[in-house]
């Protein structure tokens, strides 16, 4: 469980990223955060694994305040939170297997990892994860030989290999075309349901949010302005979040459903 209690974050240059956030995210939920650019979605999500550190309030993960964590404790926190990025963040010159194994780094000793001596189970786990996102046949390809959607699937496999209890995804489909976007979202949703991993996704597109989310959180200028099930979202909540009526480019658009894995 993740719980924000009066959490605020002021960046060193004075920008207020988060303002007095109070929210509780339950285990197994699939939460989508929507909001305008600059609303604080990334700041919110990156606070949870402490890539940024809130400057006030309490942030509980599994009932422990993570804002005090440093060094080893912080790394331990991060091992149980997987993260997926807009730009996939793979090492382009390394092959797919090596990239996926990087998910085990937090569980592997420094010396072992420098010499690439992964445990047999870890390698099996990496392969298993690749199969779950249907990309096992590319295991020895270099990451830069893959398409964007394939790279994002590899990065999902990396997160799976980490065996996290939480997955954070910061605009995972912003660089992908509509069919591929739906494919990636479908994988995320499937993993959320099958492994019961709490998943928090930032999205720009309101229609995608409504299609995949159990719960939608709307942010605006560092504050939460909407929080409720996807079914409750209507024109009015939209205006609340975006401060204007819905436009074509707020929608990713429907694509014929891609193969269900």
């Amino acid at each position: 469980m993740i719980e924000f209690k009066n959490v605020g974050l002021v960046y060193p240059n004075g920008t207020e990223g988060l303002k007095n956030i109070n929210v509780k995210i339950n285990d197994g939920e699939f939460v989508v955060i929507v909001g305008l650019s600059g609303a604080g979605k990334s700041t919110f999500i990156r606070s949870i694994n402490r890539l940024v550190t809130p400057t006030s309030g309490t942030l509980l993960v599994d009932n422990e305040d993570i804002l005090q964590y440093r060094g080893k404790k912080l790394r331990e926190l991060r091992t149980k939170i997987g993260m997926i990025f807009q730009n996939y963040n793979l090492v382009k010159r390394s092959n797919v297997l090596k990239n996926v194994l990087a998910g085990r780094l937090g569980h592997t000793g420094t010396l072992r990892s420098i010499f690439g001596m992964y445990k047999k189970e870890d390698i099996a786990l990496a392969y298993e994860s690749l199969k779950r996102v249907n990309i096992a046949d590319k295991i020895y390809n270099r990451a830069d030989e893959l398409s964007g959607g394939q790279q994002q699937r590899v990065s999902i496999a990396r997160v799976l290999t980490q065996k996290p209890s939480y997955i954070l995804a910061d605009e995972p489909v912003a660089s992908l075309d509509p069919p591929t976007s739906h494919q990636v979202m479908t994988y995320l949703k499937k993993i959320n349901k099958e492994d019961n991993i709490t998943t928090i996704v930032n999205l720009h597109f309101i229609d995608m949010a409504m299609e995949y989310a159990d719960r939608i959180i709307g942010m605006r200028a560092g504050e939460i302005v909407f929080d409720g099930p996807a079914s409750e979202v209507n024109e009015k909540t939209f205006e609340q979040i975006y401060g204007r009526t819905i436009r074509e480019d707020d929608l990713r658009g429907e694509a014929e459903k891609v193969e269900q894995p």
Binding site: N49, L51, R75, E76, L77, R78, T79, I81, G82, M83, F85, N89, L90, A102, G103, L105, G106, H107, T110, S113, S155, R158, V159, Q162, L168
Partner: peptide
């Protein structure tokens, strides 16, 4: 950054 986020040192 991805590695830091997954707990690597």
């Amino acid at each position: 950054e991805a590695m830091r986020a997954s707990g690597a040192n």
